[in-house]
């Protein structure tokens, strides 16, 4: 039982971490808190549904869905945010908030306001026994996928030139351009990565619920915002730490809170988060940013 809870906790934390990381990558480069991140997740969910309806095999459908999330993120930057480059943080934040609302309306009217069932392969809902423990296949896959994604991303950011340039751009964008690296490449890559992560998170989310609805991305991304801020806005390790922390606390509270208090879980978790911010206003692992006079 306890092992099962641990698995669930890490699995949920992994999803939050992927989402928070996507938010943090974009924030570190362009200073935008992307409210429409959740809609990228929803879009990937619908793409999976469509691909399966078209009869694509499951792995291919997942590939299509995740790519859709990534491409949509890049398109979103081109259409909605690029005209605003250089605008204030507040304007960017509000624009993404409006884009998010608009996309929700589009999903509600263009597809359906009601949840659509997604036919997940049977093996994903099973469980396997491990000595005395019974462990769900879904959460286990979720952990493996999150871990792989984090490792791959870390490798990309450490090893590739573009990845290194992105870490540098978070610190000093102008100087990165002085090295001959185009600004548009950095920004497009940031959105692409955030879309990829949102798409992956969507797959893990759908796998556990087997349905898609217009508000699917809403709640997890809200949590991811908070994870990103607790971790340290714009800090990538912070986002991962914040995501796991939030996921683990949520699941553990869910498991341990007495039934009478359980419905208050979110309020308790978030009050804790605000308390953390009081002690560390810059977050758990603050972002590095060059101070220029």
């Amino acid at each position: 039982m306890f092992a099962q809870q641990i698995i669930n906790a890490i699995s949920l934390g992994g999803v939050y971490a992927l989402l928070a990381l996507g938010l943090a990558i974009v924030f570190s480069i362009v200073g935008l808190i992307n409210f429409a991140h959740g809609e990228l997740m929803t879009l990937s969910g619908y793409a999976l549904l469509a691909a399966l309806v078209f009869g694509l095999p499951f792995p291919l459908a997942v590939l299509v869905a995740v790519s859709c999330g990534a491409l949509a993120a890049v398109a979103m930057e081109r259409i909605a945010f690029r005209p605003m480059r250089g605008a204030s943080v507040t304007s960017l934040l509000l624009t993404s908030f409006a884009v998010s609302s608009l996309l929700k309306v589009v999903f509600q009217n263009g597809i359906s306001a009601r949840p659509q069932a997604v036919a997940m392969p049977g093996w994903m809902t099973g469980a396997f026994s491990f000595g005395d423990f019974t462990i769900g296949v879904g959460p286990s896959i979720s952990i493996v996928v999150s871990a792989l994604a984090l490792i791959l991303l870390e490798t990309f950011l450490r090893r590739s030139v573009t990845g290194t340039a992105m870490r540098a751009a978070a610190e000093d964008f102008d100087v990165v351009r002085l090295m001959g690296i185009p600004a548009s490449r950095i920004i497009a890559t940031a959105f692409l990565l955030s879309g990829l992560l949102a798409g992956l998170a969507a797959m893990l989310w759908v796998a556990q619920r087997a349905s898609v609805d217009p508000l699917m991305g809403f709640t997890p991304v809200l949590k991811a915002f908070i994870a990103a801020v607790v971790g340290g806005l714009g800090s990538l390790p912070g986002a991962v730490a914040g995501g796991f922390l939030l996921g683990i606390i949520e699941v553990l509270l869910q498991a341990t809170l007495p039934a009478a208090i359980a419905p208050y879980r979110d309020a308790i978790v978030l009050s804790g988060v605000i308390a953390v911010l009081l002690l560390r206003p810059q977050g758990l692992i603050p972002a590095v940013r060059v101070q220029r006079s």
Partner: peptide, 8 residues
């Protein structure tokens, strides 16, 4: 932005 997210 951190303050905005805290209000969220």
């Amino acid at each position: 932005s951190s303050a905005s997210i805290a209000t969220l």
